[in-house]
Amino acid sequence: MSVQSRRAVTYVRVSTARQGASGLGLDAQRSAVQSYASGVGLSIIAEFVEVESGKRADRPQLTAALAACMLHRATLVIAKLDRLARNVHFISGLMESRCEFVAVDMPHANPLTLHLMAAMAEHEAAAISERTKAALAAAKVRGVRLGNPNGAKHLLAGCDVTPVFSSSWS
Rank of each mutant, 00 (worst) to 15 (best):
F101C: 00
L112I: 10
A109K: 01
A138S: 08
S5A: 06
V164Y: 15
F165R: 14
I128V: 12
A103W: 01
Q34P: 01
F101W: 04
V14R: 01
A37P: 02
C69L: 03
A134F: 10
V14F: 01
Q61N: 14
Q19Y: 08
H72D: 15
L66Q: 05
S15M: 06
A74H: 05
D82Q: 00
F48A: 05
P111L: 12
P149L: 11
V102A: 00
H115Q: 14
R83P: 03
M117D: 05
H72E: 15
L94I: 03
S170W: 09
L62N: 04
G158E: 13
S53H: 09
A28N: 11
H72I: 05
V9P: 00
W169Y: 10
M106P: 00
H108T: 13
A137S: 11
E130H: 07
V144M: 12
P107H: 08
I45H: 04
H154V: 04
R142M: 10
V77W: 02
M95H: 11
M70L: 10
V9N: 04
E96G: 04
R131H: 11
D27R: 12
V141I: 13
S15E: 12
R7V: 03
A57K: 11
G54C: 01
L62Q: 09
L114K: 01
E130S: 07
V102K: 01
S53F: 09
V33E: 06
A85G: 09
A137K: 10
E52V: 08
A118D: 03
S168D: 12
A119T: 09
A134S: 15
A65W: 03
V77R: 00
L136C: 05
F165L: 15
A17N: 10
M117L: 04
A125Q: 12
W169S: 11
E130C: 05
Q19M: 08
A126M: 12
